[in-house]
């Protein structure tokens, strides 16, 4: 037993995961007792469908936070992408194969621009992405203030499609997370994100292409926002310039709950996935218990403080 504890001490990351997994199990058991509709196949299907968008955006946020940065432009970027996709598809529903890659490329490019600006201007990422968020939001509103556009049947069907009873979108999400996790842990470029996040100067002195890695992380965040927008447009069927606004701050909660610290260099995508599960499940259960969304806000705030306090306290020991 002590060997196990020692192993966890050495690898603090996994202890973060253990805490979150324990909370998840607690939540599922408590949910089973408190509500007879919570522990049903149907509810979990819905739940997974709900968490796809948040999961995707949080994944992108994880890359940037690992690097020691933050991306406050993701919400606006998701909104802008849904507007682009829905209006493009309303114009030419047959060009689905072109619209989606275009949206992804544009979102990735805007993400990369965020990273580039932090480097070229040497401005704090908080400020750069905040400014970009404002620019993107303003631009989207100038194009169209109201939700609009439409999507072809095929895309809408995709959002409700199921494989062996599991939503396809959820399968895609888990696959993307697995891919991201493997990339971060196993590949040279993925691991370099941790290195740069841990100590940028040391990484530079070790000959890592720091600037390229920074731009890559922000570009990935943009790509994830674009993917989230595809899921979102498929589900809602419209492009809404305000739909992503709340996602910016929401995307940070799962990241920090999952043990990725804002200072950068430590954490991982598994923690984020668990964090997304925890947050979404908790809200789902509270809905079943008829707890007003007002108290859900209070609880979300407390979760952030408690999670971060736990993670930072262990760091100091």
């Amino acid at each position: 037993m002590s060997a196990v504890v020692a192993e966890f001490r050495r690898n603090r990351l996994s202890l973060s995961y253990v805490i979150v997994v324990a909370l998840l199990i607690l939540l599922v058991v408590a949910g089973g007792f408190l509500s007879d509709r919570f522990l049903t196949w149907r509810n979990f299907g819905n739940l997974f469908q709900q968490l796809v968008v948040l999961g995707m955006v949080s994944l992108g946020q994880t890359f940037v936070v690992l690097l020691g940065g933050i991306d406050l432009a993701v919400g606006s970027l998701v909104s802008a992408s849904t507007v682009f996709i829905a209006h493009f598809l309303e114009w030419r529903p047959d060009l689905l194969w072109l619209a989606l890659p275009l949206a992804l490329i544009a979102a990735t490019a805007i993400g990369a621009l965020n990273g580039l600006l932090t480097i070229v201007l040497r401005v704090h990422p908080l400020i750069v992405t905040l400014g970009m968020s404002s620019i993107i939001f303003g631009g989207t509103l100038m194009y169209n203030k109201e939700p609009g556009g439409s999507v072809p049947r095929g895309l809408a069907d995709f959002s409700y499609a199921k494989l062996w009873g599991i939503p396809v979108t959820a399968i895609v999400l888990v696959a993307v997370f697995a891919l991201a996790g493997l990339w971060l842990q196993r590949s040279r470029s993925g691991r370099s994100i941790y290195f740069v996040g841990g100590d940028r100067e040391a990484a530079r002195l070790n000959g890592l292409p720091v600037n390229r890695i920074v731009v890559m992380a922000y570009a990935l965040s943009g790509l994830c926002a674009g993917l989230a927008a595809i899921f979102l447009t498929a589900r809602t069927g419209v492009g809404d310039p305000r739909i992503g606004a709340a996602l910016t701050l929401q995307s940070i909660t799962p990241v920090v709950v999952g043990g990725t610290i804002l200072a950068g260099g430590r954490g991982g995508v598994l923690g984020t996935l668990l964090g997304v599960l925890l947050v979404t499940m908790l809200n789902n259960l509270l809905n079943f218990l008829n707890v007003s969304s007002y108290y859900q806000w209070v609880i979300q705030g407390l979760i952030i403080i408690i999670a971060v306090s736990i993670h930072t306290t262990r760091r100091r020991q």
Binding site: L262, G301, I304, R315
Partner: peptide
Amino acid sequence: KRNVSPFLATLAMMIILQGV
């Protein structure tokens, strides 16, 4: 005292106050 980053501490406070 708790070493919570200012961003997260005040973000949490923002959400809590909103809920209350």
